[in-house]
């Protein structure tokens, strides 16, 4: 059995009265590409945010690379980690947002080198040449000195992917990376992600692009009302869903 890079054990999250995640458990192996699908409000974003600790869980645990995230057990009790420790844990994950969230006052290249230089304290020259290599990978060598406002949505999202990769994460989280894009720009971002998947990166992707899920994902997870309803190989979940709710969702989307 392959080692689990991510192990999620019955995590729950409520916002006020509203339960956004109910006892979610999920494993992701190293090198696996997992797509999360589900209706709006089903908790997909919340799940990714919990993994990246942008949202703290109420109960349950998430282990990344064998390390418990966000809390520490001592004397039979759980203690929250300090902000600094959480920031250190976050270095193992990269996150790509629906709305790109590039730093508007920095060029594409500076967006990418910001983390390596400022956070990891890497050599500036070395970080720059690595960033140029990443820009080449996402097909934007010519845009190194452009500001985000001078880039199209698809180009911004590709820079955002490069920015996340520059931290050399072991897990990449994508939250609907193409849903803020014009239809003709979706393909360029998906092909960058596909290339990344083929290079062996472990990825968790929230997406409505079922074509991408079918072609690239190893596994697909369908969520509804904060819980995982069905998960399995992508051809099974997308091609022959077992659950009625999954079937209903898929027929509504296609």
């Amino acid at each position: 059995m392959t080692r689990h890079l991510v192990a999620i054990r019955s995590i729950s999250k409520t916002f006020g009265e509203f339960q956004a995640l109910r006892q979610v458990s999920l494993d992701v192996s190293a090198g696996e590409v997992l797509c999360l699908i589900g209706a709006s409000g089903s908790g997909k974003t919340t799940l990714l945010r919990c993994i990246n600790q942008l949202t703290p869980v109420d109960s349950g645990g998430i282990w990344l690379d064998g390390e418990l995230l966000g809390v520490r057990e001592e004397g039979g009790r759980m203690h929250r980690l300090t902000e600094r420790q959480i920031a250190r844990q976050r270095l193992k994950t990269g996150m790509v947002f629906q709305r790109f969230n590039l730093f508007p006052h920095k060029t594409a290249l500076e967006n990418i080198t910001e983390g390596p230089v400022q956070v990891q304290g890497r050599d500036r020259q070395e970080a720059r040449s690595e960033a140029m290599e990443l820009l080449r990978r996402v097909g934007l060598t010519a845009k190194a000195d452009a500001y985000p406002s001078q880039l199209s949505g698809g180009q911004q999202q590709r820079v955002a992917i490069a920015r996340a990769l520059a931290m050399k994460p072991m897990l990449m989280l994508f939250d609907e990376p193409t849903s803020a894009l014009d239809p003709e720009l979706v393909g360029e971002v998906l092909s960058v992600m596909k290339e990344l998947a083929q290079s062996g990166m472990t990825m968790m992707v929230v997406t409505h692009e079922l074509g991408f899920a079918r072609e690239v994902a190893d596994r697909v997870v369908y969520m509804d009302h904060g819980a995982i309803v069905e998960s399995g190989f992508s051809r099974d979940v997308l091609g022959a869903p077992r659950e009625a709710r999954t079937r209903a969702f898929l027929s509504a989307v296609i």
Partner: peptide, 27 residues
């Protein structure tokens, strides 16, 4: 400054003060 900027800064491992100094205050 858009809340997404704090989150993007956190996501690349910045602490609160560094995010403020490098990302939020300049904007």
């Amino acid at each position: 400054v858009d809340a997404g900027q704090y989150e993007a800064a956190k996501a690349i491992g910045m602490g609160r003060l560094r995010a403020l100094r490098r990302i939020i205050l300049p904007q």
